[in-house]
Design a binder for these strands. Structure first.
Lengths: 149, 149
DNA sequence: CTTTCTGCAAAAGCTTTGCACTCAA
DNA sequence: TTGAGTGCAAAGCTTTTGCAGAAAG
């Protein structure tokens, strides 16, 4: 599979980040980055690990946690806490709002440039915004209809 | 300690919710509600449990989880996932935005009526908004200064 | 009385940690 | 050569679950 422009760019970012921080460029770190680009939206550490395993590249759970942390630190991934039990990650391509149904737990994504801009403009008390994670809790259509009965 | 107006109102809401859902009005549920009002902002299940214990009212962990769920369902509490390891709860008095420092993990709260209004107005695909949980990740002043060195 | 709720303890899951070995620099 | 990184397994925490006994309705 040919590498996308975006992936090549991310690899460059990771390389520079590691070099500047004087940390090592291990094959595992790049393999995990590649796999994250395949999975694309909303994956957990477990899914990432399973996907690696499935494609025949074995890495330890600890390494995945370690790497995912690094990928967040250099802005390639973003961590969202949408569910109680585990963190989920996604590529930092765009900012969007998550709509989570309180009943069935389904997750939708919505874009709203205006809200996005305002959230990232927040600078109270000298705080420097990086990215946001906005979740609106409520009822999805099907659960709303079901509750009407 | 005299009960505040807000607490009395919350007790009424809980009472009505339980009656309508045909669930039981147990002393534990009201004791936990009272304690949640004492703690006020950002507490976890563990803190709630410890606070109960400290004031001599023993309840099991399972009951706290159960009750906190109910309090969220009837809109008295809101659950926020701000940290990896545990959920935190707060009274649903107002909507605000959390500013979380990616380095030290400190949490600030900010109010912005405009963003709030927009988030609660989201109605894509028939989704019915209840409340939002918006977190801006970035650097707090002290961590920003420290990183400049 | 019946059925839900509580308490207790065990189980389940995600995340972190410690240590020996490996390997990037 | 050497210290950071990996793998593995155990430990740590929060959350969930199962079941017997308590108690609300």
């Amino acid at each position: 599979m040919k590498k996308s422009q975006a992936l090549l760019k991310a690899e460059a970012i990771l390389t520079r980040y590691l070099e500047e921080a004087e940390r090592r460029l291990t094959p595992e770190r790049f393999a995990i980055l590649d796999k994250a680009f395949e999975l694309r939206a909303h994956f957990g550490v477990n899914e990432l690990l399973e996907a690696m395993e499935k494609s025949g590249y074995h890495v330890s759970r600890a390494t995945v946690y370690n790497t995912v942390e690094i990928l967040c630190a250099c802005g390639i991934l973003r961590r969202h806490l949408l569910e109680t039990r585990h963190a989920s990650y996604e590529l930092a391509r765009e900012n969007h709002i998550h709509l989570v149904c309180s009943v069935c737990g389904s997750i939708e994504e919505v874009n709203d440039p205006e809200i996005e801009e305002k959230l990232l403009g927040i600078g109270i008390n000298g705080f420097t915004p990086g990215y946001f994670s906005a979740t609106v809790h409520g009822l999805c259509v099907s659960c709303m209809e079901r509750s009407r009965k």
